Amino acid sequence: MSIKLFKQVYYNIPIIIRLLLIIVLIMTLAGTAIHYIEPDQFPTAFEGVWWAFVTAATVGYGDYVPLSLPGRILALLLILTGGGLIAFYISRFSAVAINHEYNLEKGKVAFKGGGHLVFIGWNERTRQLVDIALDKNPDLRIVLIDRTLNSLAYQHYPVHFIHGDATEDYTLQQANIKHAKCVIITADTTEKERQADNFTILTTVAVRGNNEDIPIIAEILSGIQVENAIRAGATTILRTNDFMSALLYHEMSRDKAAMPFEDTLNLLKSQAFRHRNVPSELVNQTFQAASKKLLLDQMLLIGILREKEWMVNPGHEFRLQKDDILICLLPR
């Protein structure tokens, strides 16, 4: 190996590893030397190396002690050189650990895992979503990408934070988007609706360019941008304004005994929607008969999806057809 190649390899090694290699080399040389200088006191090279580490670390067990003048001179040199190196290594290791913690909080550390969820955009909805997701599944791995946050402490929110612009490939690669399970893009409510939707669509394009198969859930504020988001590659569109408008209408026109907002909130928290094809034994059966059968499997039938038309609670005499999709609720 040439000197140039050796230097290139050596300086590409992290400084912590380099320091450790130097310490091990010095301790090995000193331990081997003391074995040959005083073979009676240090019968094997391993015992010499043990003595070298104990001496350089200023532990001083006293189980092995050099008696000759050359041996004691070697011990003095070892204390002056090896002791300083070990102290520097420990301080450097501490500095690296603290610096890593700082970079992690500032969103400068790349995520190395896989099968994780990627949330893009930090706001109150994202915070609540993180709380709900981790409450249901504490082992869930979440990566958050945001360009407005300066830091996010892991002890406050157990997510891996990446600071950057999600429309850029480098930021998405830092979040290991190729091995993610799903991406959720929330709208930036601090911007105007059109600007927020444009950023969501650009982010969707960037994510789809880095991972062709990943499910992308995108929040769109303006109805006219829904088709653009779908063209960009979003698999699910959340129309927040439509949902809130419908919910507010229910609150305005509700019966006094009803609580539409609380009912909907608790429904979404405790139940999971499922779409399934109509089993062959339920074709031509009434909605009432199908509901009774599905209840045996803890599935609550609430409606039918037929040719992209939602039919919620269509009536007990409504009959199912072969290509219908059942809309059901299951306990989480």
Rank of each mutant, 00 (worst) to 15 (best):
H163P: 01
G164S: 04
G164F: 02
G164V: 07
E168S: 05
E168Q: 15
E168G: 04
E168Y: 04
E168F: 05
D169P: 01
D169A: 13
Y170S: 06
T171Y: 00
T171F: 00
T171E: 00
L172M: 11
Q173A: 14
N176F: 13
N176D: 11
I177M: 08
K178R: 14
K178E: 14
H179V: 12
H179L: 12
A180M: 04
K181V: 09
K181I: 05
C182H: 15
C182V: 14
C182F: 10
V183I: 15
V183S: 06
V183A: 06
V183Q: 02
I184P: 09
I185M: 08
I185F: 00
I185Q: 12
I185N: 09
A187H: 06
D188W: 04
D188G: 08
T189D: 11
T189I: 13
E191V: 03
K192H: 10
E193M: 12
R194V: 09
A196C: 08
A196N: 09
N198Y: 08
N198G: 01
F199I: 14
I201M: 02
L202Q: 08
L202P: 02
T203G: 01
T203L: 06
T203Y: 00
T204C: 00
T204P: 00
A206G: 04
V207D: 00
G209H: 05
G209I: 03
G209Y: 00
N210A: 03
N210D: 04
N211I: 05
N211H: 07
E212R: 12
E212Q: 09
E212P: 05
E212Y: 05
I214E: 01
I214W: 00
I214G: 00
I214N: 01
I214R: 03
P215M: 08
P215G: 02
I217F: 10
A218R: 10
A218S: 13
E219K: 05
E219T: 14
I220G: 03
I220D: 05
I220P: 07
I220W: 01
I220L: 01
S222V: 10
G223L: 10
G223M: 08
G223S: 13
G223I: 11
I224C: 04
V226Y: 04
V226D: 04
E227K: 15
N228H: 06
A229K: 07
A229W: 08
R231T: 11
R231G: 03
T236N: 09
L238V: 15
L238T: 10
R239Y: 05
T240N: 05
T240D: 07
T240H: 06
T240S: 13
D242Y: 08
D242C: 03
D242I: 12
F243G: 12
F243R: 12
M244R: 15
M244K: 13
S245M: 12
S245I: 11
A246Y: 05
A246F: 02
A246E: 15
L247C: 10
L248P: 02
L248M: 15
Y249T: 15
Y249K: 15
H250D: 14
H250W: 06
E251F: 01
E251K: 13
M252H: 15
S253P: 04
S253F: 11
R254Y: 01
D255L: 14
K256N: 13
A257K: 09
A257Q: 06
